[in-house]
């Protein structure tokens, strides 16, 4: 079966103005997302990983126009969501849902679960009112809760259960794409595993597509088909899961993977400890944005921006943005720690 494009992001930029001076003029911009492009196919799970502040959540929010993108196209089934009217966009919210990290913050504490779900369906005109109660109970069962819990309030649930309510709410409008922004990050491992399995089962059952945003590479390896690595508002590498974990090409990806502690005391591994902190996205470094921390940086890196590209060492669809991938892999360049 040919892969169907579902969402195509092209040249997406999201700059937030920084006001300053006594006139409150825009003095600068936070370049939260700076010219990124990628495609998501129907039924797959694409993850965005990277350290805090690299632009993961902003990407998700711009796709949904929770934030008006500064520039770029967001094509959903061929329609550019970035240019349609706000009214039309509201209709598309039915197809594109989002689940957030904090199940507390995203659910109104004064509403029962049933009214939370009912409201979501009402806004999108899903089902006649008299059919909704049955659907709500069915949804609760789908996400592993009990029908009688429909009339309870959010504070009567545990964190994991509240995340299930968030999932039920997203599902209630029959979406095609669900953006999961750190959706399991706040959960304890034993509960996180329950929710991850649930998301996988639902994907199969309803042919859902996920854009999965997370800083946890363990979770990402588990759930993803393809992975995007971001650094300071840019995509530095994109690959299918297997290539990314087994054959990373960008020095940042390599450092990121090597920094994660392994839950196996017998696996002693080479760790690349990066120097310094992530620079500010207000005045990001010129050239390659990673050059201030990269052990391979040269003068060229400090002035010339590397573009995403592939090399002979990479499988189809695997791209990274580094001038020296070939030289580094061949051992022709030595790291300078």
């Amino acid at each position: 079966m040919a892969k169907q494009e579902l969402l195509k992001v092209e040249g997406l930029k999201q700059y937030f103005p920084i006001k300053g001076g006594f006139l409150g003029r825009t003095v600068n911009h936070v370049k939260a997302v700076d010219d990124i492009s990628f495609t998501i196919y129907e039924g797959e799970t694409v993850s965005i990983v990277g350290e805090s502040g690299c632009g993961k959540s902003t990407t998700g929010r711009s796709i949904l126009r929770l934030e008006e993108p500064t520039e770029g196209k967001v094509e959903f089934q061929g329609v550019d969501l970035a240019t349609i009217s706000k009214r039309q966009m509201r209709d598309y919210r039915k197809d594109l849902q989002i689940i957030f990290q904090d199940p507390y913050a995203s659910i109104n504490p004064r509403q029962t679960v049933a009214s939370v779900l009912n409201e979501a369906m009402e806004i999108q005109n899903v089902l006649p009112a008299n059919k909704r109660r049955a659907r709500i109970e069915e949804l609760l069962e789908t996400v592993g809760l009990l029908p009688y819990q429909a009339d309870r309030f959010p504070h009567e649930f545990s964190g994991g259960q509240r995340q299930r309510i968030g999932i039920a709410r997203a599902l209630s409008v029959d979406p095609k794409l669900i953006i999961c922004d750190e959706a399991v990050s706040a959960l304890d491992v034993s509960i996180q595993a329950q929710v991850l399995n649930l998301l996988e089962d639902l994907q199969e059952q309803y042919n859902l597509t996920y854009l999965f945003i997370s800083h946890d590479l363990g979770v990402v390896r588990h759930i993803s088909d393809r992975i995007i690595v971001m650094y300071l508002g840019k995509i530095v590498e994109i690959a299918d899961k297997h290539s990314l974990f087994e054959n990373p090409q960008h020095p940042y990806t390599k450092a990121l993977l090597s920094a994660i502690p392994v839950p196996d005391p017998d696996k002693k591994k080479e760790r690349i400890v990066l120097k310094g902190d992530v620079p500010s996205p207000i005045d990001p470094p010129a050239g390659c944005r990673f050059h201030t921390r990269c052990p391979f940086a040269t003068d060229k890196c400090r002035t010339e921006e590397p573009k995403l590209r592939t090399s002979d060492l990479m499988k189809e669809g695997h791209e990274a943005a580094c001038h020296y991938m070939e030289e580094i892999s061949a051992g022709a360049m030595q790291p300078n720690y």
């Binding site: 304890d188 491992v189 996180q192 595993a193 399995n197 363990g218 390896r221 588990h222 392994v262 696996k267």
Partner: peptide, 22 residues
């Protein structure tokens, strides 16, 4: 707990969660 942990260093089939809540 160890069986529920998604690992970044190895491929796993399905995770085996602990049922229920604390």
């Amino acid at each position: 707990l160890l069986n529920s942990l998604p690992r970044h260093d190895i491929d796993q089939e399905k995770l085996m969660p602990i049922k229920g809540n604390v």
